[in-house]
Amino acid sequence: MTYGFETLAIHAGQEPDPRTGAVIPPIFQTSTYAQDAVGAPRLGYEYSRSGNPTRDSLQECLAALEGGQVGLAFASGLAAEDALLRTVCAPGDHVVIPDDAYGGTYRLFARVAQRWGLDFTPAKVSDPDAVRAAVVPGRTKIVWVETPTNPLLGIADLAALAAVAHNAGALLAVDNTFASPYLQQPIAFGADVVVHSTTKYIGGHSDVVGGALVTASTDLGEELRYHQNAMGAVNGPFDAWLTLRGIKTLGVRMDRHCDNAERIADYLSRHAKVAQVIYPGLPDHPGHEVAAKQMRRFGGMISFRAVGGAEHAVEICNRARLFVLAESLGGVESLIEHPGQMTHASVAGSPLEVPADLVRLSVGIETADDLLADLEQALG
């Protein structure tokens, strides 16, 4: 039987405990497991780095939500990214990345992977021709995409980029953190692997750090599973349990995030002290039509450029009260930040440097009128 998204979020990988009947899967807070005999572990569990029932529940649920074959949970989104790179790539290989990628992703490539011998080229992922031109024949192993991108909310045509990547003999990896699997399922458009910071919308409550990979093929999934164990950057059972708890309400939360973001984007687009609003749900966004094709709705993230430049952008962030001045995103509470000095400081002076007048909002699920009132006083 085929189930809807919300049903999968509550039930996939989360059968009642067979021993006690507990409706919620237990937290298996253990490092090791008793074995029935030498070489005969019960249900295959030997050591919790290699396998843990709570983490397995989360991994099965993530795969179901993304429509993939294998789900793997990690200690952070960057740990998941690192495992993917070291599984697929070798020194001398090449990756195409977004020209406005998340600052932590850029730092991983520029400060860690490049020293290991991995080359990369930033490209405008909203332009398939630009991505095609960035591919290095025979060397490009991954076309790495965010859609929407962080923080400029660029939209990539996933089906078009899947064709570009596959024609080059490369994988298409899609960071789906901003959209969440509720709003977008990249595997359905040809992606080979989906990346998440589960810290964000999937966890949804700003109380747990984690990451995930979901693969379209079992073979790639098993290769990654080997590296997950060999490299060891797994999440603990309590973190897995918290993430599962957040997943259960992902659908209803995302609908509210989108409701509030649509109202705020409309308000900001008419405000005299806002020079530009960047939100895929606005008809004038250059990626609006593509987003409408491959997303259920347009998400809870908004960026805008302040009239008055960087000084005014910083003032807006400092004056906000209900919007908490903090990094990260995707929680039930609304956040505001200045990317140039916060989440994207690592790209300063690089081709990925973000505009100094940019403000990024993670719109929460509070009462929309209260959020609008806070922005009104913050804008001054």
Rank of each mutant, 00 (worst) to 15 (best):
D119T: 13
V112K: 08
E311H: 14
Q59R: 09
R115P: 03
A63L: 10
L8V: 08
S197K: 01
G349P: 09
I142S: 05
E315N: 14
T215E: 12
A101W: 04
A240P: 02
A320D: 06
H288R: 04
S334H: 01
N176L: 09
N150Q: 09
Y106I: 10
V314K: 15
A165W: 01
A310I: 12
L78P: 01
Q185S: 14
H285L: 09
A230I: 02
V277T: 14
Y279D: 03
Y3G: 01
P26H: 12
L152R: 10
A37K: 05
I316N: 01
F323S: 03
D192T: 02
Q69V: 11
L213T: 10
Y3W: 13
L183M: 14
P355F: 10
N235T: 07
A133Y: 05
A233Q: 12
L58V: 10
M301N: 13
A179C: 13
S346N: 04
I10P: 00
T105R: 06
G299H: 09
F120T: 10
L152Y: 04
V38A: 05
V252Q: 13
S328Q: 10
F5N: 01
N318H: 15
G204T: 03
G21R: 02
G210K: 04
D357C: 10
D175G: 02
E289P: 00
G221K: 12
S350L: 06
A173C: 15
S48V: 04
A34K: 07
Q377M: 13
T149E: 03
C258P: 02
Y182F: 15
A233W: 09
L171T: 10
A79M: 02
T2D: 05
H196G: 03
L78N: 11
G190F: 01
P181C: 11
P18C: 04
A240D: 11
R107P: 00
M295L: 12
S57D: 08
D207R: 01
L224Y: 06
D374N: 11
M301S: 15
N52A: 11
W241L: 07
G51A: 15
Q35V: 11
D219F: 04
G349C: 00
G287R: 07
F28C: 12
A170K: 11
P53T: 14
M342S: 13
M231P: 00
S76V: 04
S350A: 08
S303F: 07
A292D: 12
Y3R: 13
R225P: 00
H257T: 09
A75G: 09
D36P: 00
V314I: 15
D157P: 03
Q228W: 07
P351Y: 07
T7C: 03
D370I: 05
E146M: 13
R360I: 02
L8P: 00
